Amino acid sequence: MHDTTMLHLIEDDIAPAQELLELLRGEAVALHGRDMAVLETILARKQSLIVLLEQHGRRRTQLLAELGLSADRQGVQALAAQSAQGEAMLQRLDLLGELLDACQEVNQTNGRIIQVQQHITSNQVRILMGGDSPSLYDSRGGTSPMARRRPLSQV
């Protein structure tokens, strides 16, 4: 009975994990294009999938704890060793692990894209505000002395 429940919990996470991976890949494209409308839609769906995956993960952990098993792969392997569905359980667990690893990798890439864009934006704002720009030329062809801060409305 517990083995069937565990198998269903694992299988129930595969489709959301696949959808999350596709959303993260779409997020990378939207980040490059700075498409805020698409990013907002992706974020909303991504959050709901993450909550669902976390809930299922807690249920799996609770099930393993009730059986006195560790809440990791070794615990699932111990449960699978006692089950006729053990091989299928481990195969599905491997697939889920691969999907979640791929999600993590794409998410880290997306994080780096965001950091680069934040850096670029902060540099652009600093230049527009007149800060930290002694290498810029003034209207007479000379370099600017100390930059003075200006409100964006006067740039």
Rank of each mutant, 00 (worst) to 15 (best):
Gly131Lys: 14
Thr121Arg: 09
Asp101Glu: 13
Pro134Thr: 01
Val38Ala: 14
Glu40Trp: 03
Leu90Val: 07
Thr61Leu: 12
Leu100Asn: 12
Ile113Ala: 09
Gly57Leu: 07
Leu43Arg: 07
Ser144Thr: 14
Ala147Cys: 13
Ser122Tyr: 07
Val51Phe: 05
Leu21Gln: 05
Ala147His: 15
Pro16Gly: 05
Leu53Gln: 03
Ile113Asn: 11
Leu63Val: 02
Gly68Cys: 08
Asn123Val: 04
Ala44Thr: 08
Leu49Ile: 01
His2Ser: 14
Leu95His: 08
Pro151Ile: 14
Ser122Glu: 08
Arg59Pro: 07
Ile113Arg: 13
Gly75Ala: 05
Val106Thr: 03
Ile10Ser: 04
Gly142Asn: 15
Leu64Ile: 02
Asp138Val: 00
Gln77Phe: 06
Glu105Leu: 15
Asp132Leu: 02
Val76Tyr: 10
Pro151Asn: 15
Gly142Leu: 11
Asp35Glu: 09
Gln117Ser: 06
Thr41Glu: 11
Met129Pro: 00
Ala84Cys: 06
Asp94Gln: 12
Ser70Lys: 10
Glu66Ala: 10
Thr121Tyr: 11
Leu152Thr: 03
Gly141Cys: 08
Arg25Gly: 13
Leu24Phe: 12
Val106Ser: 09
Glu105Phe: 15
Gln47Tyr: 08
Leu67Cys: 08
Asp12Thr: 03
Glu11Trp: 07
Asp35Thr: 00
Met36Gln: 11
Ala80Ser: 07
Arg149Leu: 07
Gly131Trp: 09
Gln108Asp: 14
Ala84Ile: 01
Ser153Asp: 03
Pro16Lys: 01
Arg126Phe: 07
Glu66Leu: 07
Leu63Gly: 10
Gly26Ile: 05
His32Thr: 07
Leu49Trp: 00
Met89Thr: 06
Leu23Ser: 08
Gly75Met: 07
Leu95Ser: 11
Gln154Asp: 14
Arg60Ala: 00
Gln104His: 15
Ile50Tyr: 06
Leu152Val: 07
His8Thr: 09
Val38Met: 08
Met6Val: 02
Gln85Phe: 13
Arg73Glu: 06
His32Trp: 13
Thr5Ala: 11
Ser122Trp: 04
Gly97Tyr: 04
Leu136Ser: 14
Ala65Asp: 12
Ala17Glu: 04
Leu79Thr: 00
Glu54Met: 10
Gly68Gln: 09
Gln82Phe: 14
Arg149Thr: 11
Asn123Ser: 11
Leu53Glu: 02
Glu40Cys: 02
Ser133Lys: 04
Ala78Val: 07
Ile50Pro: 00
Leu63Thr: 03
Ile10Tyr: 10
Gln62Trp: 02
Gln74Trp: 01
Arg25Val: 07
Gln104Asn: 06
Pro145Phe: 01
Arg45Cys: 11
His56Tyr: 05
Arg25Asp: 13
Asp12Gly: 09
Ala78Pro: 05
Arg126Asp: 11
Arg148Phe: 08
Glu27His: 05
Leu69Cys: 05
Leu67Gln: 12
Asp94Ile: 05
Asn123Arg: 14
Thr143Met: 09
